[in-house]
């Protein structure tokens, strides 16, 4: 019976979607303007947006080590900043040597409160990574988000619920914290 009510809730929600209330966000990789100018942090470019150069992490071709890229993003607030950073995890610039550890990563929401970033991942995501890949993917995500000093911990949920693991090897029931 529980399933039924969830289906009910989801279906009602989807009716509201038809009515145009609320959005289910799916991030699209942000093509970046490789400006190349000096790495300035937090410069306002338009009235509402801040520009920043950040580090984004990918795998090497052998899936042995993480590789860093410096990329520029524009964002309106902290949550937007995290979303832009997460989106960049899917699209390295140096495609010959850098391989993305995240692909088609859909989520219901990204929120930030009390130093904790919470990503509510879509349960329909297919990750197709073994243990090494999962471990590196989570490392890449952690390094990318922990570069922002205000982020103290990261929680990953699936469809609003706490789950044991995303890809079947690493436990994510406890929030990630800086080491």
């Amino acid at each position: 019976m529980k399933l039924r009510f969830q289906a009910l809730g989801a279906a009602i929600f989807s009716v509201l979607l038809l009515a145009g209330c609320g959005q289910q966000a799916a991030p699209s990789p942000q093509p970046d303007s490789a400006g190349g100018s000096g790495a300035s942090v937090g410069q306002p470019s338009t009235a509402a947006e801040t520009r920043q150069t950040i580090s984004v992490f990918y795998a090497d071709s052998d899936l042995l080590q993480l590789q860093e890229e410096k990329r520029e993003i524009s964002y309106t607030d902290d949550v937007d900043k995290y979303k832009k950073a997460i989106a960049l995890l899917e699209s390295p610039e140096q495609t010959e040597t850098h391989f993305p550890l995240w692909n088609n990563f859909h989520y219901h929401s990204v929120t930030f409160a009390n130093g904790q970033v919470t990503i509510d991942a879509d349960g329909q995501n297919v990750y197709n990574l073994g243990s090494s890949g999962e471990s590196m993917a989570l490392e890449a995500l952690k390094k990318t988000l922990f570069q922002f000093p205000e982020v103290e911990s990261i929680v990953i949920l699936e469809d609003g619920r706490q789950v044991e693991t995303l890809m079947g090897h690493v436990e994510i029931t406890e929030p990630f914290t800086r080491e």
Partner: peptide
């Protein structure tokens, strides 16, 4: 017992954790 996977088809090998 597991088997690995990655987006680069050239990546390969055996590892034990």
């Amino acid at each position: 017992i597991h088997a690995n996977s990655f987006s680069n088809p050239k990546t390969g090998g055996t590892e034990t954790y």
